[in-house]
């Protein structure tokens, strides 16, 4: 009916109106790269991208522009699954990168062995941030479950760092009490002290810093340092517990995307440069612990030493962890339903 009544030029006009949406302009000459990352890396990658753009220009003569996308780690992984053209992913946990292959194979399943230090150029851990003068006298995990202490931690179902927080508490209890049942009780008590479960790390620190809620914020070490830097001196104190988790945020090239866009060389160069002295030093300056021991030595005084428990040793990888703790009706859900019976 529509075609029958309209003359050809009208169809053509309609086509012209729609056309720009389907054809992308192709005359951009510089190479662009999209780094899909999680929230707390914003400042670090901002500095690193500038360093890399200069380095790549000097090395190959090509102009490269790196765009960044930040958001909660799981959500970012989902965007890539749903078709966001991220050349590289730099996420909070390897489980989120593994998830890229959930529906279609977007990435080589052995991605984690492709780069040094099982694809983690920097690592971090989970520490506490407390208010001025540490009024509730918090020094270790046990102090979090003292009466009257309110703990700020996001919801592990929606936040990557919250899973690290959960596992750090679990690892501590396992180390100290030696049994899974005791660890379960300990973690349950921590969540009994949590008045709010924000959906992400950002909103959790917002609640702690802006709204003055809670006595202690469980947080990434680098986020805690950034918060210290941005606030008035002495307003908050960073407390490093005796035991915590070795949190390794991995990086990877997304094979299906770089092969399609023809950006593999730049994308690999981008990640490799993270392991260079420049990249490692920058990571240290932005409060990530560099994986290269030689550079880490330079930042020895910056970070407190503590016992770091690698997740592979205790929990046997993210797939197991998610199945055991965070899937529906698993340990976290059990804890919450017991608390709110």
């Amino acid at each position: 009916m529509l075609l029958y009544k309209t003359s050809a030029w009208k169809i053509f006009a309609a086509f012209l109106m729609v056309a720009p949406l389907f054809f992308q302009t192709t005359h951009a000459k510089t190479v662009t790269l999209l780094n899909v990352s999680y929230d707390p890396t914003r400042a670090f990658y901002h500095a690193y991208n500038q360093a890399f753009e200069k380095y790549w220009k000097a090395k190959t003569g090509d102009d490269v522009v790196v765009y960044e996308s930040h958001g909660p780690s799981g959500k970012q992984a989902r965007s890539v699954i749903d078709g966001m053209q991220g050349d590289v992913v730099t996420l909070a946990l390897s489980g989120d990168i593994d998830a890229l292959n959930k529906y279609k194979q977007l990435i080589d399943p052995n991605w984690q062995s492709r780069l040094p230090y099982h694809s983690c150029p920097y690592y971090s851990t989970i520490v506490f941030l407390v208010r001025k003068g540490n009024p509730k006298n918090i020094h270790d995990w046990d102090d979090l479950i003292k009466p009257g202490v309110q703990v700020m931690t996001p919801n592990p179902k929606t936040s990557g760092v919250a899973r690290w927080n959960f596992l750090a508490a679990w690892a501590y209890a396992l180390e100290k009490y030696g049994s899974e049942d005791r660890a379960y009780d300990f973690v349950k008590q921590i969540y009994q002290h949590a008045p709010i479960l924000d959906t992400g790390a950002r909103s959790s620190s917002l609640s702690f810093i802006q709204r003055g809620l809670g006595d202690v914020l469980i947080s990434w070490e680098n986020e805690a340092y950034m918060a210290l830097n941005e606030s008035k001196p002495g307003e908050y104190e960073l407390i490093t517990p005796s035991v915590s988790i070795l949190a390794e945020p991995p990086v990877a090239v997304v094979d299906s995307v770089v092969d399609k866009k023809g950006t593999r060389a730049v994308a690999e160069g981008y990640l490799n440069y993270l392991y260079s002295d420049v990249g490692q030093t920058l990571a240290g300056e932005y409060y990530y612990r560099p994986s290269n021991p030689k550079i880490a030595e330079k930042f020895k005084d910056k970070f407190h030493s503590l016992k770091l428990i690698p997740i592979d040793k205790v929990f046997k990888g993210w797939k197991q962890i998610n199945n055991k703790f965070f899937k529906d009706n698993k340990i976290f859900d059990k804890i919450m339903s017991e608390i709110n019976r």
């Binding site: 909660p72 799981g74 959500k75 992984a77 989902r78 699954i81 998830a99 959930k102 919801n155 179902k157 929606t158 936040s159 949590a194 008045p195 709010i196 479960l197 924000d198 959906t199 909103s203 998610n322 965070f326 899937k327 529906d328 859900d333 919450m336 339903s337 709110n340």
Partner: peptide, 29 residues
């Protein structure tokens, strides 16, 4: 999401549950 404490069984609304399912890559749920 900002004004609710998002505690399951107490102040967790349905849309938050959708997002939390998506974050576990549980598209069916």
């Amino acid at each position: 999401v900002f004004i609710a404490a998002n505690i399951p069984y107490k102040t967790e609304i349905l849309p938050i549950l959708i997002v939390s399912k998506l974050d576990q890559f549980d598209y069916t749920g």
